[in-house]
Write a protein that binds this DNA or RNA. Structure first.
Length: 427
DNA sequence: TCTGGGGTCCTAGGACCC
DNA sequence: TCTGGGGTCCTAGGACCC
């Protein structure tokens, strides 16, 4: 018999907080979205940029201020094209540390507002504020306070959408920006939703929009008028069910504290010219360094190494390998990358590589141990887990999953039992 | 509009196990 | 000896999001 044991953190406390309030009746979900985030941070920090079109990016526009957006600048547009539209724009290099810091300042205010915060990205989050009415105020007054606090304490504008469901809250903030506040009246949700273009549905991008429009479907209401089977036939099983539900405003997802990210990666666009192996190895080394450094900083280890390639004609390919043990060590990941790179050697030579990327998935916490315990049939699992707890001096080993019945020899549990990750991997 | 860098989720086939 | 059904993991690719 084999079982994996994981150390769990204080998950139960978080779960308690989330279940104190059951949403659904009233509009109590806030979607808060910082306006043109990177560009706004630049304008905040450099007074000479305020009121002017600002482009953040190198080569390609990563973010544009509203002044630049008003002139037709979009992301990702290359800087040359953006400057043609907007010759007086000021281009600045991204400063990721400044954005991370600003983001964490804003998230501190979110956390101070409600225990139920779900971060979606560096600049947006859902907040569940139902059940706070008696103590703090209505969702609308909470949102108003939130907006003025972010402006006063961090110096940034934030747009907030309020609705009964996550999806509508997000749509509402999209409609309200920049620097706006919009509450969707629960009585008038479909009136609000159905006239919107299909692209507003979550998960409808370029490809799906084209498929829907081919069938004459342009608005959310058009999709809502179709039977489920038709939507599934157009968009596929999972996407079809989601689309159909959203078009009818069925979204039962609750605001949940964010699970940890499930991959860490980095990539680099390359010039369109032949590269030799030495040059590629150098670039790969940099990328691997960056990724493993970030993994160690966030105390994560990973098992699956994915290399991404993009070629001259914008075709893509990925190659991946899953290692027997999770790691954040540079040499381990680098070795895996080299063997993956080798399998692509001829393609790279023939097609002209224009992007090289790495991501590591199958992540676990560095201090989370996944242990395989071989047992003889009849071994008392609970007793074995107690034994592990005693030996590691911790009560936090508490979850047993993936129990396969399999006869095997009895093996002393410590000190040399096989583990997916050794204790030495701790940073 | 000719394309950056960071992610998530889904699908589908094959290997493998019971 | 022949065979089915259910499940997980791995790999590759695609769509989408900010």
């Amino acid at each position: 018999m084999q079982t994996k044991l994981c150390r769990t953190a204080l998950e139960s406390t978080a779960i308690l907080c989330e279940h104190m309030f059951v949403p659904g009746r009233s509009a109590s979900i806030l979607h808060a979205d910082l306006d043109s985030f990177y560009a706004s941070v630049e304008q905040r920090d450099s007074p000479q940029l305020r009121g002017k079109p600002v482009l953040v990016g190198r080569g390609v526009v990563t973010a544009a201020s509203y002044e630049a957006k008003a002139r037709g600048v979009r992301t990702p547009m290359n800087c040359g094209a953006a400057l043609k539209l907007c010759p007086d724009a000021i281009v600045v290099d991204p400063r990721m540390e400044a954005y991370s810091e600003a983001s964490s300042d804003v998230f501190d205010i979110f956390e101070d507002t409600t225990p139920s915060v779900e971060g979606l990205s560096i600049d947006e989050a859902f907040l569940e504020v139902g059940g706070l009415e008696r103590l703090v105020g209505t969702p609308l007054s909470i949102a108003t306070t939130l907006r003025s606090r972010v402006a006063a304490e961090v110096g940034l504008n934030i747009t907030v959408g309020i609705a009964r469901t996550k999806f509508l809250a997000k749509v509402a903030s999209g409609v309200a920006k920049p620097d706006g506040l919009l509450l969707v009246d629960p009585e008038k949700e479909l009136d609000f939703l159905h006239p919107l273009p299909v692209q507003k549905l979550w998960g409808v991008g370029k490809v799906t929009t084209a498929k829907l429009q081919d069938r004459g479907l342009y608005t959310v209401g058009d999709v809502a008028a179709l039977p489920l089977e038709t939507v599934v036939a157009v968009a596929g099983t999972a996407a079809g069910h989601k689309l159909h539900a959203l078009a009818h405003n069925r979204d039962h997802r609750q605001v949940e504290r964010r699970k940890r990210r499930s991959s860490i990666g980095s990539q680099r666009a390359l010039e369109r010219r032949p590269k030799d192996r030495t040059e590629l190895n150098g670039i790969l080394g940099d990328i691997v360094d960056r990724v493993t450094h970030r993994m160690r900083l966030s105390n994560r280890v990973g098992r699956t190494v994915v290399l991404r390639f993009r070629f001259d004609d914008f075709s893509r390919a990925t190659r991946s390998v899953t290692l027997p043990t999770a790691t954040s060590q540079t040499p381990d990941i680098l070795n895996a990358c080299h063997s993956l790179l080798q399998t692509m050697e001829t393609t790279i030579r023939n097609e002209g590589l224009t992007l090289l990327g790495l991501s590591v998935t199958n992540l676990a916490d560095s201090d989370e141990m996944q242990l395989s315990l071989p047992f003889a049939d009849g071994t008392n699992l609970d007793a074995a887990i107690d034994d592990v707890r005693a030996r590691f001096g911790t009560a936090s080993i508490g979850r047993a999953t993936n129990v396969n019945r399999q006869l095997g020899p009895t093996v002393p549990i410590l000190p040399d039992w096989p583990s997916k990750k050794s204790v030495e991997d701790k940073p």
